[in-house]
Design a protein around this nucleic acid. Structure first.
Lengths: 154, 154
DNA sequence: CGAGATTAGGAACGATCGTTCTTGACTGAT
DNA sequence: ATCAGTCAAGAACGATCGTTCCTAATCTCG
């Protein structure tokens, strides 16, 4: 009953995550989302409730669909240089988590998953804390991100 | 000639850095700055030119005045858990640097300084790349920050 | 073929953003 | 004392923010 949806909710969610991985939360306006995702304002608000709702959905989607394969790659020792999932997590942790408990919870869960995956990496002789491997990875990605300044001041 | 300035420019710069270390750039409004710093709008714009000007001044000030002592502590092996300088750097690197080449340059310079300081840390038997120590430190601070969710969603 | 329901399209809302302007109070040098 | 120059106080600006509302267009089902 009623007109069918003209967009794929999952595709939109994933695309939104791409935007949120590139710029800060406040740097992505609803107009940007409407334009880049090709979905109308009304549909966005009907489907996700609010900008924050879309953000949370995007974060959740990435954590659920992309994080598993990412952890596999990491556990296999592969270098994942520019995975957008890491960027999304980085931004979520630094910028959103301190002022949004729901984001903080999602980020904490992601850390947990990644820690477990990295601990089963090619064994090190000593026994480092479970977190050191992920810390190093995050630091590395953080620096790589800071080095990719593309646009002008504002 | 003229009425003397009613505030200490360095103190204001430092205080502004404190605000920018706590929230994202877009999350700190000019009204916030005016209110928290106790300096009038006009004075801020007269002194720093713009919000971005104040941000850059704050970042530069912290890098020039706080980073040296921070590197000393780090080189001495001290644990600097909650230094606001690190938070400011973290936020600058993740959120501002990708879209502001000037911030990116400052951040890169800070990395360089910290790398050198950390490489002279209590010698490790092997010879890790110069960056690994800092990477670990950044990762650690990143996670600590994400875990301190205080305020509600919005 | 109509009801009923849900979408797309786009204008419009109040709030807040960064920035500028106007006015008057204050200070230091002449 | 006077004048010039700076600062303080706050109103005001246009732009943009996230969100809502209204009006068709378009689909499914009886």
């Amino acid at each position: 009953m009623g007109r069918p949806r003209g967009f794929d909710e999952q595709a939109v969610t994933a695309a939104a995550a791409g935007l949120f991985a590139g710029r800060a939360y406040d740097g992505v306006s609803v107009d940007d989302l409407v334009q880049q995702l090709g979905v109308h304002r009304n549909s966005l608000y009907k489907t996700f409730g609010s900008k924050r709702g879309l953000y949370l959905a995007a974060l959740r989607w990435h954590l659920e669909h992309r994080l598993p394969s990412l952890t596999e790659q990491l556990a296999a020792g592969a270098a994942v240089a520019d995975d957008p999932t890491l960027d999304l997590l980085l931004l979520a942790a630094v910028e959103r988590a301190p002022s949004d408990v729901e984001v903080a919870a999602l980020v904490a869960k992601a850390w947990q998953t990644l820690d477990q995956a990295l601990q089963r990496a090619p064994a090190t002789p000593a026994d480092p804390p479970a977190s050191t491997a992920l810390n190093a990875l995050l630091g590395e990605r953080l620096r790589a991100r800071a080095a990719t300044a593309s646009a002008g001041p504002s």
